[in-house]
Amino acid sequence: MSKVMVVTSGKGGVGKTPSSAALGAALAQTGQNVVIVDFDVGLRNLDLVMGAERRVVYDLVNVVQGDAKLAQALIRDKRVDTLSLLPASQTRDKDALTEEGVKKVIDELREKFDWVICDSPAGIEKGAMLAMRYADLAVVVTNPEVSSVRDSDRIIGMLDSKTVRAENGEKFEKHLLLTRYSPARAARGEMLKVEDVLEILAIPLLGIVPESEEVLNASNVGCPVTLHNPVSAPARAYMEAARRLLGEKLDIATPTAERQGFIGRLFGRKAIA
């Protein structure tokens, strides 16, 4: 049974695209057939984060409008052969997508892949609505920061009312992925703790991705972090999150701050969990 999973957040800049890439790659690394679909029509970036920006010929809009076949638009990843990407259009706007058109493409993708990951644009407009519309489950990407938590709460409300599943009265699975978490700052009382965010949003936790320079390093070179540096803390967090999505019961350890000595604090060295 294939699954359609939307990666969403409401707020921009919280890490939806790197998280889509990392979760997609991690799932594909376990042997699952995965496609990641970029829904950010007009502002595509998944191709860049995945290192496929020079291989885009046709895109989602071309397929929705019938100008290209799905197989022509899909880009197979060169590192993991069970991973594919369906890019968004860079030159069109969001109105180029229609509900029926998106449904048709998603139905077709369901037949070919085990996982269809929809990388949502920020906001609550048409693009974000279409990205979640046909999903079976959602990963809500949240930073431990007030505006991100508020927007996530809004998005959770929409997942429970605007998706086809919700409208049919079916259960809609939602998972929280807490990204850019800094254990040292949380310990000092300068950042919302994991428990705080969980208590406020009240959806199950999928994983905690610590703030790490490895995430930027990976996107700099166009490679999902799970492939770029598999032993790094964020890569391990994403790989464990992927295993949880596959049904494994793994405990989620809250990253802890590295104890810093006086000298370390003096020079403000970053604590890496």
Partner: peptide, 23 residues
């Protein structure tokens, strides 16, 4: 002053209000 507890409290108040309006 620790700022996280303030963030938490502000969010709880705000979201209680916004959720009531939802829909």
């Amino acid at each position: 002053k620790r700022s996280a507890p303030v963030a938490r409290e502000r969010l709880q108040l705000l979201l209680a209000h916004e959720r009531a309006l939802e829909g």
